[in-house]
Design a protein around this nucleic acid. Sequence first.
DNA 1: ATCGATGTCCAAAACGTTTTGGAAAGAGCC
DNA 2: GGCTCTTTCCAAAACGTTTTGGACATCGAT
Lengths: 362, 362
Amino acid sequence: MSGPLPRGKKRLMSGGRKVTIKDLAAEMELSITTISRALNGYTDVGEETRKKVVAAARKMGYTPNRNAQRLVTQRSHSIAWVQSDDESKFTDPHFVEVMAGVLREAQQSHYDIVLSSEISERQMTTYERYVHDGSVDGFIVDLPRPNDPRITFLLDAGVPFVVHGREERSDRYGWVDVDNYGNFYALAKLVIENGHRKFAFINGDERFLYASTRRRAVEDAVADMGLPPETVLTLEGTHPMGEAGFQLTELALADRDITAFLYSSALMAVEGISAITRAGRKPGTDALIASMNDELRYLNLAPLEGNITLVRSSLRAAGQAMVAEVIRQCERGTVSGTLIPSLFDLGTGVSGESIKGDVLFV
Amino acid sequence: MSGPLPRGKKRLMSGGRKVTIKDLAAEMELSITTISRALNGYTDVGEETRKKVVAAARKMGYTPNRNAQRLVTQRSHSIAWVQSDDESKFTDPHFVEVMAGVLREAQQSHYDIVLSSEISERQMTTYERYVHDGSVDGFIVDLPRPNDPRITFLLDAGVPFVVHGREERSDRYGWVDVDNYGNFYALAKLVIENGHRKFAFINGDERFLYASTRRRAVEDAVADMGLPPETVLTLEGTHPMGEAGFQLTELALADRDITAFLYSSALMAVEGISAITRAGRKPGTDALIASMNDELRYLNLAPLEGNITLVRSSLRAAGQAMVAEVIRQCERGTVSGTLIPSLFDLGTGVSGESIKGDVLFV
DNA sequence: ATCGATGTCCAAAACGTTTTGGAAAGAGCC
DNA sequence: GGCTCTTTCCAAAACGTTTTGGACATCGAT
């Protein structure tokens, strides 16, 4: 009992070769032109022939060779996402959340995501290579910094890309962003309006624009409310992890005048809350807690519900929007910005009464 | 003052075309054969010409078209990693840790990682497509289940792949794994040898092999030590997140006979410890805590140091080993398994004395 | 009958590489 | 001078598609 191995679908020609368009053309006694055009839905092939071609293609297990397609069409249907290989950034849980959105949208649009990591110094060479060797059609740029060289390069190269965030040049490129300024201005205002005269702001890494923007927003709010700059104690977490949230909160707790805590990330907020609890204070009543909530799937905020004021925004939605934007640029040539909506969930303030606030939706 | 835009490096020919090997050949008055062979380090081109070719290629900014190379060589230098789109699995922080290793190794070996997510039902179509359209050379298979259809398919297709874990067929494919059985057998034995007669085992999702193997190991250890099965209360976390660690520990705390807690993941352990603390017991003295430690970068275990027995193993190293294995299969045709080492860090037991144990390194 | 549309089909070129199978020139040897 | 061996180069084929620019009927209208 020897012979060819039984396979679910036959996908190989005799000799172990994969089925090509030529095999299909020979089998059907048609030209490869007709096969190609039938499969790609052109109108210049008869309805009956098209059906037969599609059927035969399925039967023989024909799948067009992606690299041949890419070579001739000059489009790869792939998007690059280059990560910096720095410990702090890369293992950030926020990243996974964005990625979930990126991958979902890519899958639905039949694009591939080419992911790579590279140490900062050599990152630009990776971008150059991808631009010039035709392996991707566009780029996703994450966590922009001021005057980000990646943006400079991509703008100059004239290649499609999207940035997760805005800076000076954001009218010239595609971006997806949350209203960092508006959200944190509103949060700081909320804190002050609820009677707090000194509060801590546990921020993210201010080398990144999202964090420096948030600091500016909080400081502006303090100033606009006619309070002195010392009203807010801003502490910078060099990476947005829980660890920093705990330590920085302990630092802030040393100042007994501080009655409210504003966090840049819910990940830091939960750790901060555990520091506050350990210090013998009750979050939500002894201290007002407010935070950005990026909807990290593995972070359970339910136990805190009601005791914390959150401005919720989906990083996953941002990921989806980014891929959609790059694809639009590739296929329609349009460039646009997308603001991801934020939703306010008000919690409780000092001695448990619920927070007053007018901003419910941004 | 009009004219061509100044560029750092000229990479385009007049007309905006990218520099091809033909342009380079024309410029140098050599054949494209010679250019190609010079650039690829063949010995049949003179040393002087090679130097000149390399210099000219750099000067003109020539980068070989990846898709043309792929078409003619029939190798893509890419590896696919298909994720299931299920919430629970995909947002697992352990995944990011593995990915860090995967990307680092891929970058060093000049391979691209093509990442995609797909709902379970349609996952196999994605695999089929990647196998047949030539877009990748091999696959990474994550979190295998018993009789995993992905393994069946890839084995049948005869394409390079590596699995993060072992099952019945693991002598026929490349794998990378930690000694789940050995580690958890040793941990359970340690718990029992230190005098505990009833303990909880907070396991991961037992639909996955790593978790069912761990359960088997723990149960075997209990039996081998001559104790009844009720000695261990195994609780299954449907996903290996903190949340489950908290809730399942609370469940186990209801049984006052339980004096030790064994966790499948440090992520669950920290949450469990917070539940134990909340219940008024002191981890490390009132209760023995033991756990697997996958070295998640964002998880700070320092505060627990000394009070928890950990078996440490790097998921990042596993990621690196996986990529290396797939590449070896592609380039050398060899298939092999790699066991990632584990290190025991002993903590303290009941009333604070340090844990007794003979297994220090697996 | 002729002409222009219309509906189907196809041969050949093109995409940018690598590889195969030599060719040409010189060196060394008898 | 003829022979082989090396060194250095190259023309042409091949990889598997898509696209261009027709060809060839058929059909209606003139």
